[in-house]
Amino acid sequence: MSHIPSEAQKVEVESATVDFFKLEKDGQSTYYFDTSKEGPPHPMVNAMAGLAMIKGTNGTVVMINHKAPGGLFAKLENDVQYTLEDLDDGLVKVLFSYNLNANTESDLSQTSCGG
C-alpha cells in the first residue's frame, strides 16, 4: 500500500537518496517521500533535502517512515513545524512545514543521526 497519492509526479531533489513526488493542489506544493524501508541515515538525509526545498515557502513535505524520527526532531528549531500520524499499517506519516515567523533557523546540513 502506497501512502503517496497516485496523482503525484516524481521530481528530482538534490541530495535525496529516495524518490520524491510532488503534488500541486490549490496553489500549494506538497512533496512526498518514503523511507519506511530504509535505515539511518536515509530518513534524516531525505527530510533535510525536502526541507531545504520548501524553506521560506508555504509548501509541505510528507515523510513516510517506519517510526517517528526522534533524532531528526531534535535537530529542528522552531522554524520547522511537524505533526505525526500513526498509519494503519504500523508506519508513521510526518508532515513538515515552515513557521515563517520563527526566530530561529534549523541547520539543514546536519544529516547525521549521531550527536
Rank of each mutant, 00 (worst) to 15 (best):
M1T: 04
H3S: 07
I4W: 02
P5L: 02
S6G: 04
A8L: 08
A8W: 02
A8H: 02
A8N: 07
E12G: 00
E14F: 04
T17E: 01
K22C: 06
E24P: 02
K25D: 12
D26Y: 08
G27F: 05
Q28W: 08
T35A: 12
E38T: 06
E38S: 07
G39Q: 08
G39C: 09
P41S: 08
H42S: 13
H42R: 13
P43G: 03
P43K: 04
M48F: 01
M48C: 08
A49M: 12
G50H: 00
A52T: 13
I54W: 01
K55F: 06
T57I: 04
G59F: 12
T60Y: 00
V62E: 03
I64R: 01
N65P: 03
N65S: 07
A68E: 14
P69R: 05
P69A: 11
G70W: 11
G70H: 01
G71L: 04
F73L: 11
E77A: 02
D79L: 09
D79G: 10
D79H: 00
V80N: 00
E85W: 10
D86N: 11
L87C: 13
D89N: 15
G90Q: 03
G90D: 01
G90M: 01
L91R: 08
L95V: 13
S97L: 09
S97P: 14
Y98K: 13
Y98E: 01
L100E: 10
N101T: 15
A102D: 13
A102Y: 12
N103H: 13
E105F: 09
L108N: 05
T111V: 15
S112E: 15
G115D: 14
G115Q: 10
G115C: 15
